[in-house]
Simulated scan of single mutants.
Amino acid sequence: MNKDQVKGTAEKVKGKANEIIGQVTGNTKQEVKGDIQQAAGQARKSLGDAKEAIKKS
């Protein structure tokens, strides 16, 4: 596991937390921020996955 995979996963978790807090409090702005964080985290994790795949081949 490389740093991009770890940081991407952490960003996804933070995004999910923001999304849930936004839903519970009715704060649409925070909910959208959470969605964006999750997407960014997934992109970074995917980059890390690709790096690992290249390293192993």
Rank of each mutant, 00 (worst) to 15 (best):
M1K: 06
M1P: 10
N2S: 04
K3I: 12
K3M: 07
Q5P: 01
Q5Y: 00
Q5S: 03
G8K: 03
G8C: 02
A10S: 14
E11M: 12
K12I: 13
K12E: 10
K12H: 07
V13W: 08
V13P: 00
V13E: 00
K14G: 01
K14D: 03
G15I: 00
G15E: 00
E19C: 10
I20E: 06
I20Y: 01
I21S: 14
I21A: 15
I21Y: 12
G22C: 06
Q23E: 05
V24E: 12
T25L: 04
T25F: 05
G26M: 11
N27G: 11
Q30I: 11
Q30K: 13
E31V: 03
E31F: 02
E31D: 12
V32G: 10
V32M: 13
K33V: 14
G34V: 01
G34Y: 03
D35H: 13
D35C: 05
I36G: 02
Q37I: 04
Q37W: 01
G41T: 01
G41R: 01
A43Q: 12
R44C: 09
K45I: 15
K45L: 05
K45Q: 11
S46N: 11
S46I: 07
L47A: 10
L47W: 06
L47H: 08
A50S: 06
A50R: 04
E52I: 10
A53K: 11
A53L: 15
K55Q: 03
K56N: 08
